[in-house]
Design a binder for these strands. Sequence first.
DNA 1: CCCGAAACGGATTCTCCATCCGCTTCTGCG
DNA 2: CGCAGAAGCGGATGGAGAATCCGTTTCGGG
Lengths: 179, 179
Amino acid sequence: MPVLRSDAARSRARILDVARRHDPGALRFNDLAREAGVGVGTVYRHFPTTHALVEALTLDTLERLRVLVRAALAESDAGTAIADLLRAALDLQLEEGGLQPVLLSAEDESDEVHEAKQEILGGFEQILVRARAAGVVRPDLSTEQVEHLVCGMEHAVRLGASSDREPYLEILLAGLRPV
Amino acid sequence: MPVLRSDAARSRARILDVARRHDPGALRFNDLAREAGVGVGTVYRHFPTTHALVEALTLDTLERLRVLVRAALAESDAGTAIADLLRAALDLQLEEGGLQPVLLSAEDESDEVHEAKQEILGGFEQILVRARAAGVVRPDLSTEQVEHLVCGMEHAVRLGASSDREPYLEILLAGLRPV
DNA sequence: CCCGAAACGGATTCTCCATCCGCTTCTGCG
DNA sequence: CGCAGAAGCGGATGGAGAATCCGTTTCGGG
């Protein structure tokens, strides 16, 4: 990443700025270009694919999640750690619609995103290991399955008019406990 | 519905037949037309919108679900009834990708679909009432919330490589139980 | 100030969606 | 049977959006 030329940095910032005001699931490069006052070519140069743009938009949120994972790792009670983390992950996904695709996608286009995801997923695995050991999460569930469950819960919350995630989170946590 | 002319019935059947071999989430009318050996106009005449086509494709599955709801209503144990029904609903959704959109959509384009949905949703509500009364489902959850949870579970199962829905179903049922 | 590299922009091409209307096929009736 | 007109057909067509390509402009180090 050889430092951006000043005009390039300006364009990039404008595009991201405009993109943030759009539904992350329906980004139209031509519209973004017009609204940002740049050519379409410029948008495509900065973000070769929609996914690259979504990653860039999501990076902040991803960093926030990374911090929350560190906090959870520092928490001594395994039950509290996992409950807090799942709540945070769900909230962030609800707040930033682009987060779920980024977390689920196997191919990361940006190194920063890749690195953040590595730490997040690794940390999550750790916390889950502790939670299993402490008997607050069923030992027969894989890390992936729990990740998928969080995504499923996001989906469920989004289907409702009110987006009160608390009942859904309770159900998830109760369901995860060993029988 | 004033009975179809013979050529119209043939076209309709061909289109549905071809559509069934496609991903319900990515139906391209031009492709269907070519593969079915009819003009695009014909496809649009029979199914003015993608949703209308999905409804038609889904009707069989919807009827199956209706039958399963009746069976659940006849079951005397409320816990068994709801567990069986949720399992069935999840399985049908996984099997027929178009089912979730049809169940969730508020506007039904076909009367048959509307009627089936009425019975299904009404019956489900009944079963849920009994389940709450029997103490197998938390009383603070609305019918809609439970519906959304099933959809969320479908989403979660689909994210995984293996589509073994059993663990997800167990988690859902455990989570639904009162604390 | 100059020059090569970097970035820009938008015309253009390609693909896919959806409509419209002249032509064909069906069917019921005389 | 054969005809009339209703019903259905089909694909050319116009429109919208995606993505590319290349001549022009801008930047910044020497």
